[in-house]
Amino acid sequence: MASIFSKIVEGTIPCHKIHENDKFLAFLDIMPLKEGHTLVIPKSEVDYIFDIEDTMLGEMMVFAKEVAAKLKATFPCNRIGVSVIGLEVPHAHIHLIPINAIDDMNFSRPKLELTQEKLAEIADRVKGN
């Protein structure tokens, strides 16, 4: 059965795209810790990030670096935090989160509740950078 992220790649489930190429997709997390919280995924369905072939994993990190630069240009922050947990969706993904303190990446904190309109506005701002 295809993961929710594979359905996003196929276009059967909508997302707020930030960046895309032929191998990877970056889109806003709909349950973000901070505004700009973005997920980077391979378009091919791989459950565990360390099962991704080495060359492709390197390419994914370079792609994530490009996305991080867009986020940093959009959101005033000290860093773009990077997290790989991989338990919530069986499709490898990297969380990129604008942070000012380590607690900004505490996944046990309540998530923001942003409207679709607000997510679209954030996506447009990030894509503009």
Rank of each mutant, 00 (worst) to 15 (best):
A2M: 14
S3C: 10
I4T: 14
I4K: 10
F5R: 02
S6T: 15
K7L: 14
K7Q: 15
K7H: 13
K7E: 15
E10G: 02
G11I: 09
T12Q: 06
I13K: 10
I13V: 15
P14T: 04
P14E: 14
C15S: 13
K17H: 05
K17Q: 10
K17R: 14
I18T: 00
I18M: 01
H19C: 07
E20P: 03
E20I: 05
D22Y: 05
K23W: 00
K23S: 04
A26R: 00
F27N: 12
F27M: 03
L28D: 07
D29L: 13
D29H: 11
D29P: 02
D29A: 10
I30G: 05
I30M: 13
M31G: 04
P32K: 03
L33C: 01
L33E: 03
K34D: 03
K34Y: 06
E35H: 12
T38E: 09
T38Y: 06
L39N: 03
P42N: 06
K43H: 09
K43V: 11
K43F: 10
E45T: 00
E45S: 08
E45W: 05
D47V: 14
Y48L: 13
F50H: 12
F50E: 11
F50R: 01
D51T: 06
I52R: 04
D54L: 12
T55L: 12
M56T: 07
L57Q: 04
L57W: 07
G58H: 10
G58V: 09
G58R: 08
M60Y: 04
M60G: 05
V62I: 14
F63Y: 11
K65D: 11
K65T: 08
E66L: 07
V67K: 06
A68P: 09
A68F: 09
A69C: 05
K70Q: 14
K70N: 04
K72I: 08
K72D: 13
A73L: 05
A73T: 06
A73F: 07
T74W: 08
P76F: 08
N78P: 00
N78S: 15
N78G: 11
V82Y: 13
V82L: 15
S83I: 14
S83N: 12
V84I: 15
I85F: 14
I85A: 12
L87Y: 03
E88W: 01
V89H: 07
H91E: 04
H93V: 10
I94L: 15
I94N: 09
H95N: 01
H95G: 11
L96Y: 09
I97N: 01
P98A: 11
P98S: 06
I99H: 02
I99G: 01
A101S: 13
I102Q: 11
D103A: 15
D104L: 06
D104Q: 02
D104W: 10
M105F: 09
M105T: 13
M105Y: 09
N106W: 01
F107L: 10
R109C: 12
P110V: 11
K111G: 04
K111M: 09
L114I: 03
L114R: 01
T115Y: 10
E117F: 04
E117K: 13
K118H: 15
K118F: 02
A120K: 03
A120M: 03
E121T: 03
A123K: 00
A123W: 03
A123D: 01
A123R: 00
D124Q: 06
D124R: 13
R125W: 07
V126Y: 06
K127N: 13
G128P: 01
G128A: 01
N129A: 02
N129T: 15
